[in-house]
């Protein structure tokens, strides 16, 4: 059973995963019994009652009410068990414990932002304490996305016009993958993130130092980090390759042609505008897909990115 479970399901790392898995196995086993039974019956009948001659006469068995009732009622009982089980599991999934630690999640095409109580924002990396319920309050900046952590067996759509929430309690420190499971366009399949579950102490230290280390970092170094931390590098390369967006290499100081034919020189203001209001001016040959980082990056961070861009000649 354990082997089978490991083959079929990812490791169960949340407190609610167990119920889901148990039901998953129950349905699989019950279905398998029926499937095998009926398939054997089909094969057996096909062989046992194969046509022997064209004159074969078959008995008149038109119906049997007792049988009809049996094979309606037994499955009915089984599916009602499954229904009740599934519903209880679901109620646990949506009833958030009161003492849950809250993280605000913003989905943008195509990245995940996590806002913590300290004001710190991490992109595509969610840090949470283990052994404590965590509640995510989620919304989207554009189209519908969906937040899915297979290891925790939780999933919830993230909508543009309202908040949705989701909770889980991680049972042990470790890493798990996050997928976007609502189709959201070009880079839907790149909209991944990682959850890092820490022990409470580790988490507290992480939260304290997160961002504060930035203060005493050299601006270029910080800029480089921010570009990875904010997932700029999923769309912008630094080595000249063309991804979703133009490469950063040689960008600084160059002349860019916009969609409407306007020529701009890449300077502080243009980069700033590109980061805060990416759709104000679209570079020719590209789609308007860059998310806005207004509210995510502060002035100091934008300056650092600018300093970093200057070095990429």
């Amino acid at each position: 059973m354990n082997r089978f479970s490991d083959f079929m399901l990812p490791p169960a790392k949340s407190t609610t995963a167990e119920t889901t898995d148990a039901l998953f196995h129950f349905i699989n086993v019950t279905s398998l019994i029926f499937l095998v039974g009926i398939t054997i019956a089909i094969i057996f009948f096909s062989w046992k009652y194969r046509r022997r001659s064209d004159e074969d006469v078959t008995p008149v068995i038109s119906h049997n009410n007792k049988l009809e009732i049996t094979w309606s009622v037994i499955p009915l009982i089984l599916v009602m068990i499954v229904f009740g089980w599934g519903f209880t599991g679901y109620m646990n999934l949506i009833t958030t414990p009161d003492d849950a630690y809250e993280v605000r999640v913003v989905a943008k095409s195509w990245l995940w932002e996590f806002h913590y109580e300290t004001g710190f924002v991490s992109v595509n990396e969610l840090h949470v304490p283990a052994n404590r319920p965590v509640k995510l309050i989620m919304s989207s900046d554009d189209v519908i996305h969906s937040f899915f952590v297979p290891d925790y067996r939780v999933k919830r759509d993230v909508l543009p016009n309202r908040y949705t929430s989701l909770w889980f309690e991680v049972t042990e420190p470790g890493e798990s993958i996050v997928y976007c499971t609502e189709y959201c366009g070009t880079a839907h399949s790149n909209m991944l993130a990682t959850v890092f579950a820490h022990t409470q102490e580790d988490f507290d230290t992480w939260l304290e130092t997160a961002g504060s280390a930035d203060d005493d970092m050299d601006p270029v170094e910080l800029g480089e980090q921010l570009v990875t931390r904010n997932a700029c590098d999923t769309c912008h390369s630094t080595d000249g390759t063309r991804l979703q967006g133009p490469t950063f290499q040689g960008l600084w100081g160059s002349e860019r042609e916009m969609q409407d034919g306007e020529i701009v020189v890449v300077d502080e203001n243009y980069v700033r505008e590109s980061i805060l209001e990416p759709n104000a001016r679209i570079t020719k040959g590209y789609q308007p897909v860059m998310p806005s980082y207004a509210g995510t990056l502060n002035d100091r961070q934008i300056d650092a990115i600018i300093e970093y861009l200057k070095t990429l000649q």
């Binding site: 609610t16 889901t20 039901l23 349905i27 279905s31 499937l35 398939t39 229904f83 679901y90 969906s146």
Partner: peptide, 24 residues
């Protein structure tokens, strides 16, 4: 045979807690 598999896995997807995991 195949429709039975389709049907049974449909039961799986109808079970709320499991569908949360399997949806999409």
């Amino acid at each position: 045979f195949q429709f039975m598999i389709g049907g049974f896995t449909g039961i799986m997807l109808g079970a709320l807690a499991v569908d949360i995991h399997l949806h999409d």
